[in-house]
């Protein structure tokens, strides 16, 4: 990036180099897609592109906070499945809808609290706890519906997931943007957000400075549970049917989106802005590849490659940068001697 340009310099100091890089990729993707297909830039396609992965990107928002906090939650996709299945089960039992929906959120909260208990009270790494619950929540979902599928939800419920409610936007997209704004305020402009970063940078220092580390982590994991439950509900509404394998394997896509957004897997750095850009890149890339008839597995492969390159390229650049700086220093020293 040319540091000579004043505008670029200002942008860079505001967003950091990584976000600018993502922005460039995004623009290239959009231009390429628009060139490939005349339908790409239509509003219908743009909304469709969001809606196809809306559950994943909603969960990716809270996952950003968790990874910045230095933890990880692998159980989100299983929680989405469990929530969707709980909804289907409650509906089948004939409970009134408001109670069923409240039950779903309660399940999400309880699941998040369960994760939080093992992580903060017992002191097991979140990678292990949520790996266990990835299996566990999915198991509970299968217990609830076994191998049946549940469908024929009330029409208004399906409509919530499928029909636009405000202008051309369906409910799920509105929820996504509302959550995005709320979380940006919480993470970037509130005391709680600063605590999230500080803990991610150094848990021990944070604890010694009087931050209740366990409480912050517990809040984040419970929020992840509730938001995953919400995403599961939206999935049920969009597809209009639930089965035990709803959202199977989504956790990898979600984590990929967050990490591609420049959030460090070791915690302490990254931003929701970066995560948003990477979400847009992934959505546009997948949509463009789908328009160009590339299969789903290969799309995932391309995203995987992008994920590795996103960390590898800066490393390579730093390596050669150091090499160059070292040579320059040597030359200067030799020059002085001569």
């Amino acid at each position: 990036m040319p540091s000579s340009s004043k505008l670029a310099g200002a942008l860079r100091s505001y967003f950091g180099g990584w976000e600018l890089f993502l922005l460039a990729i995004l623009i290239v993707t959009i231009i390429a897609n628009a060139a490939i297909s005349p339908f790409f830039l239509t509003i219908g396609n743009q909304i469709n592109l969001f809606q196809l992965s809306i559950e994943k990107i909603i969960v990716a928002l809270i996952m950003t906070l968790i990874i910045i906090n230095g933890e990880i939650d692998l159980s989100v996709a299983s929680m989405m499945g469990l929530a969707a299945v709980t909804f289907g089960w409650g509906f089948q039992q004939g409970f009134p809808m408001p109670i069923v929906i409240a039950l779903v959120f309660l399940v999400g909260l309880a699941g998040g609290a369960f994760n939080a208990f093992w992580i903060t009270k017992v002191g097991i790494p979140s990678l292990v706890v949520t790996l266990a619950m990835l299996i566990g929540f999915r198991g509970l979902a299968r217990v609830l519906v076994e191998d049946r599928g549940i469908t024929d939800f009330p029409e208004w419920f399906d409509a919530l997931g499928q029909q636009p409610i405000l202008g051309p936007f369906p409910l799920s997209i509105l929820i996504f943007f509302a959550l995005l704004i709320i979380l940006i305020v919480v993470l970037q402009f509130s005391g709680f957000g600063r605590k999230v970063y500080v803990i991610g940078n150094n848990k021990d220092v944070a604890a010694f400075s009087g931050i209740n580390v366990g409480r912050v982590k517990a809040i984040l994991f419970m929020a992840a549970g509730v938001i995953s439950a919400l995403a599961g509900l939206l999935y049920a509404a969009r597809v209009g049917a639930v089965r035990g394998d709803v959202a199977l394997g989504f956790e990898l896509d979600i984590i990929t989106m967050v990490l591609l957004g420049g959030v460090s897997i070791f915690g302490g750095s990254g931003s929701l802005f970066g995560a948003l850009l990477s979400i847009l890149i992934v959505l546009n890339l997948r949509n463009g590849m789908a328009l160009a008839n590339v299969t789903g597995h290969v799309q995932t492969g391309v995203i995987g490659m992008l994920l590795i390159l996103s960390v590898l390229l800066p490393n390579i650049r730093a390596y050669f940068g150091n090499l160059y700086a070292g040579r320059k220093r040597l030359k200067q020293r030799d020059g002085k001697r001569a």
């Binding site: 990898l252 990490l259 897997i265 492969g301 995987g304 490659m305 994920l307 960390v311 590898l312």
Partner: peptide, 20 residues
Amino acid sequence: YGQVPAIIVTLGTLAIYRSM
């Protein structure tokens, strides 16, 4: 040698090897 965290690399190759 690339100094990329293992969880990122293998999350990526999980998808790449499968797509290969």
